[in-house]
Design a protein around this nucleic acid. Structure first.
Length: 551
DNA sequence: GAGCAAATAT
DNA sequence: TATATTTGCT
């Protein structure tokens, strides 16, 4: 559900007035919960024994829309009876005790969630979700009378929302940065949609709540299995396993967000709720919620299935990695030290070792080829044609430098490190030659708005004046200003190419517009292109051209 | 703990 | 099927 800041207005009083039946034998606990709920504008009726609660509910079911029921060692029978009687009422169990079989039984009897005491405000704040969920997912049976107004209210607001969104879409389609708009919308929505309704069926919720109550066990369980790993590694387990679902509904703090992005769980759970595209959403904030649901689902399978963590080597992470390797130097770059320098929570030494292995492997494979290819005149512009038709060039300039003074973001080619190369060897690949490209699984997908700034990946940047522009274009003639040891070795050539060479390059650029522009050629400005087109009598540009190839 | 290679996952 | 990543072994 997409909810933007504007939409919040429609919900500003939500969940004000939602009627809560609170059954808790412990008076002080009941009072505490009640006051918290009332602070959130819920209307709370407290009962201290199940008979009383049951009779109140039975005599007037419409008086309650959600129930919070405490279960303890002695009141099991009554509570179960309550659950059976109040089937239509979304009932949240709460308890001080941790008894899996009780939890299981409650869930089996229809409880929607099992919360461990003490009930934090975050936990309580979101209880409305179960009301909405029940109202919309009554599972064939007619929904209870008390939930109908909730449903109607939600439906009516959602209809308004849909219209709003349609308009929004229409407008955004007309703009060039369609996806950028959506992206920011989504980000906004994650921040503002504090109470997303649950989308999981109750069965899944069951496992989710187990996670809530069971998390400590599971952390231990996981830590044990992650044998031989250091503290930070168990931290990662804690992060993914231990975070109660509530964090998905309240705003996550930045470190949490980061950690969630760094380590993603591979969902091999039985519910099949895996979203293949999730791998790609790691970079966007909107993906966090999905990741969360992913993360929460398999928690209950901890004891039977080995948890598998897959590190998402995001551009940022890889950047850190390369920085660390660079800082240490090739000889000193060992996983543990790299890990230290990276200061990336949730990353294990194994992860780093593996990445290092791959890093070295690629270096080994690529560098010799690079050297071979450099033998002829590497900057001969004709060699642009060496790009296979379907291959986009890797943008290799400028290499990252800590004091990078370029206004554009540093370019991170995948493998290689500027600082540690022997003089004369161009780590970052020669522009004009095909070289190793990040493959699919380097899935820092060039989502809109992301420039090829982190990895030097073949990201097609947004159109500038109708031609794709590449970092190298910007870097080409200005490369000299980059303050780094191994950058441009061809500055004099770049700065003063022979006229005939320029002609040749320009001709080729015109005849093969699909190829990247060679170093030094800047794409024409939008105005320039439009001027030229209008001079040629073309006044209307189809919109699809205007916004095409933005990725 | 490092590094390699096999196994596994995607 | 290819490649990335994890896991197991030395």
């Amino acid at each position: 559900m997409v909810c933007t800041a504007n939409d919040l207005q429609e919900w500003k009083d939500f969940p004000k007035g939602l009627k809560v039946l609170l059954l808790d034998e412990d008076n002080s606990s009941a009072a505490e919960i009640k006051s918290k709920l009332e602070a959130m504008d819920y209307i709370v009726t407290t009962f201290c024994n199940d008979t009383e609660a049951l009779s109140a509910f039975s005599s007037n079911p419409q008086s309650f829309q959600v129930a919070i029921v405490e279960v303890n060692a002695s009141n099991g029978h009554g509570v179960f009876q309550f659950l059976e009687t109040a089937k239509d009422l979304p009932t949240i169990m709460t308890s001080n005790i941790h008894c899996l079989s009780t939890m299981m039984k409650c869930i089996a009897l229809g409880a929607v969630e099992f919360l461990r005491k003490p009930l934090s405000e975050d936990k309580l704040r979101n209880i409305w979700q179960h009301v909405v969920h029940k109202a919309f997912n009554a599972g064939g049976s007619a929904i209870s009378e008390s939930l109908k107004p909730v449903k109607e209210s939600v439906v009516s607001i959602l209809q308004i929302k849909q219209e709003t969104e349609e308009q929004k879409c229409k407008t955004s389609v007309e703009t060039e940065n369609v996806s950028r708009v959506h992206e920011s919308d989504r980000e906004q929505s994650v921040g503002s949609d504090k109470y997303p309704a649950p989308s999981t069926p109750q069965l899944k919720q069951g496992s989710r709540l187990l996670a809530d109550g069971d998390c400590q066990d599971q952390i231990n369980c996981l830590s044990e299995k992650e044998s031989g790993e250091n503290d930070s590694e168990s931290k990662s387990a804690e992060t993914t396993c231990g975070n109660p679902i509530d964090e998905g509904t309240v705003q996550m703090s930045e470190p949490q967000m980061t950690r969630k992005r760094v380590v993603k769980e591979e969902n091999d759970s039985v519910n099949g709720s895996q979203h293949p595209h999730n791998r790609n959403s790691a970079n966007d904030v909107g993906g966090a919620a999905e990741n969360l649901s992913k993360a929460s689902a398999p928690n209950n399978s901890c004891k039977s299935n080995r948890k598998k963590m897959k590190v998402d080597w995001t551009p940022e992470l890889h950047k850190k990695f390369v920085q660390a390797v660079e800082q240490l130097g090739v000889d000193q770059a060992i996983p543990s030290r790299i890990l230290e320098l990276m200061k990336a929570e949730g990353l294990t030494r194994h992860n780093v070792a593996s990445h290092l292995q791959k890093y070295r492997m690629h270096k080994r494979h690529i560098l010799p080829k690079e050297d071979d290819r450099r033998l002829p005149h590497p900057r001969d512009p004709i060699q642009r044609s060496y790009y296979p038709q379907n291959q986009k060039p890797i943008m290799a300039f400028p290499p990252y430098h800590y004091n990078n003074s370029l206004s554009m973001a540093p370019v991170y080619p995948m493998w290689g490190q500027p600082g540690s190369q022997p003089a004369g060897v161009q780590m970052w690949g020669s522009p004009g030659y095909p070289q190793w490209q990040p493959s699919e699984s380097w899935h820092w997908k060039p989502y809109q708005g992301m420039q090829a700034d982190a990895w030097g990946c073949p990201v097609m940047p947004p159109l500038q004046g109708g031609y794709p522009s590449y970092p190298q274009n910007a870097a080409g003639f200005h490369a000299g200003v980059v303050d780094n040891g191994c950058s441009m070795q061809h500055n004099s050539f770049d700065l003063h190419p022979a006229e005939e060479v320029v002609d040749k390059v320009v001709k080729e650029a015109i005849s093969k517009p699909w190829l990247p522009l060679p170093l030094g050629l800047k794409p024409p400005s939008t105005e320039g292109v439009l001027d030229e087109l209008s001079r040629q009598g073309i006044c209307n540009i189809p919109p699809h051209i205007n916004r095409s190839n933005t990725r």
